[in-house]
């Protein structure tokens, strides 16, 4: 579970490319290929810089016109899957999983 004040960003050793609106991500650590669709590409672009979890949830709420609970739930699931695949890392104070 990511705390609201946790700060996350893309792992710098991930390679990625846009393919017809989806994002294809390749990791160095596991050498697996991942495909992000839906709101994934937009979040991935924002994660180029460290982002507070709370700010990402607000972004989802505003961009996709969903309520706060839904935005937070979807975000938690998304960040959990990215973390599991070693595509993101936590930085800065207040980080927790």
């Amino acid at each position: 579970m990511w705390q609201n004040d946790a700060v996350v960003r893309r792992r710098p050793e991930c390679a990625w490319q846009d393919v017809n609106g989806k994002v294809v991500v390749v990791t160095g650590a596991t050498r697996r290929i991942h495909i992000l669709d839906g709101c994934g590409p937009a979040l991935w672009l924002r994660l180029a810089q460290p982002q507070r979890v709370e700010a990402l949830a607000c972004f989802l709420q505003e961009t996709y016109d969903v309520d706060a609970a839904r935005a937070h739930a979807d975000l938690q699931e998304f960040l959990a899957s990215l973390a599991r695949e070693r595509l993101i890392e936590a930085t800065g104070p207040g980080t927790d999983r």
Partner: peptide, 9 residues
């Protein structure tokens, strides 16, 4: 050491 820091396939 450098190769460890890039997305080496």
């Amino acid at each position: 050491a450098c190769l460890r820091g890039i997305c080496l396939q």
